[in-house]
Write a protein that binds this DNA or RNA. Structure first.
Lengths: 193, 193
DNA sequence: AATATAACTGGACGGTGTACAGTTGCCAAC
DNA sequence: GTTGGCAACTGTACACCGTCCAGTTATATT
């Protein structure tokens, strides 16, 4: 029995509450389970009620996606070796993405999400690249290449897999690590002419 | 005036005709224009008529996506420098993907598409990597890294862009090229120890 | 105390992919 | 050459989707 509420009656909805419900749905049943209507139902509310707290589904997704990045472990700021710190940071990013496989395509589609968490991680990465003696003019490209590698590898690691070869997670992680090492090796080599 | 046809009357549909119509729609209005209903309308046919020639929309998309890869220029088999050939191949792939920006996320979601064209290009790439003295055990990883870089860079090059900075195409291409050079440099360096 | 605003409900619009039940054209077998 | 049977269709419908519009009412503002 769907709890009804007379028109005009308030439900005490807030934007954080809406986002929280969306995150729950996402954690439970993946991105397929996440619809405006499902979020509304979970909150005991009419679907369009959400539009008082969120402009549209895209914005909601933006927020939820950026929230996932909270799980990424920031590197030790006192770390001596910047290259090792970069490796750790990107590996953590990769792990988090693989853990939320079904929304990796969404990350790609919106270029890695553009919330506060994403920009924060981007800044950290830029700083580390600077410490690694990457020339300022190439830092943007380097960051982009690293992020592309992490998200792209995560997409390939999950995906539908092949019918015959499901692509074992261990192997996918190894391929990510290898590619990352090549990228960093080439980066170091290119700047150290 | 939607041409009607009595039930039981044939329209002379074929699977290639359906795919061709889908490709046309895609070329005209992007992936948004491509729906079962739009394809059916273009063929003067009821929507569900398509299901006699295509199992579902996913399969249709698979076919159309792989068809796009026909535009990728295969490298000169007589090329002397394998690294240069790889660069040419990946750059062409990147260009084609950027030209079909809206379906790049689809490529990612299904791990680069798995049609005959995709596998053919994969084989060519593998062969070039072998000629570049990449050890057999690492060829798969190298191929994956290169493909991830191409598709991922294309995704970032297109996308919604930022509201403030639309990301000029020229700059995006430069970032792709730079990243590619790092990848190949690191690859060469790692194998030549 | 009156008024404006914001939070909701009910209902609807236009869209999606696809399943089910029919009608009929065509091809193969007798 | 007639007869089955299969496959290609149409019509209809289901279950969704995101989102807009017009109301109703609780709350904040004056």
């Amino acid at each position: 029995m769907p709890q009804t509420r007379a028109p005009g009656k308030r439900a005490g909805l807030t934007r954080p509450a809406v986002l929280a419900a969306a995150r729950e749905l996402l954690a439970e049943g993946g991105v397929d389970r996440l619809s405006m209507r499902s979020v509304a139902q979970r909150l005991g509310v009419a679907p369009n009620a959400l539009y008082s707290h969120v402009p549209n589904k895209t914005a909601l997704l933006d927020d939820v996606l950026d929230d996932v990045l909270t799980e990424v472990l920031p590197p030790d700021p006192a770390a001596s070796d910047p290259l090792a710190a970069i490796t750790a940071l990107m590996t953590s990013t990769y792990d988090v993405l693989v853990a939320h496989a079904d929304l990796v395509p969404l990350f790609l589609a919106r270029q890695g999400a553009r919330g506060p968490n994403a920009t924060r991680l981007g800044d950290v990465l830029d700083h580390l690249l600077g410490r690694a003696a990457v020339p300022a003019a190439e830092i943007t490209s380097a960051r982009r290449a690293l992020i592309v590698h992490a998200i792209g590898s995560a997409a390939f690691a999950s995906g539908p897999g092949e019918a015959d070869r499901p692509i074992p997670a261990r192997e996918a992680a190894r391929q990510f690590t290898l590619g990352l090492s090549w990228l960093l090796l080439g980066l170091a080599q290119a700047t150290r002419v």
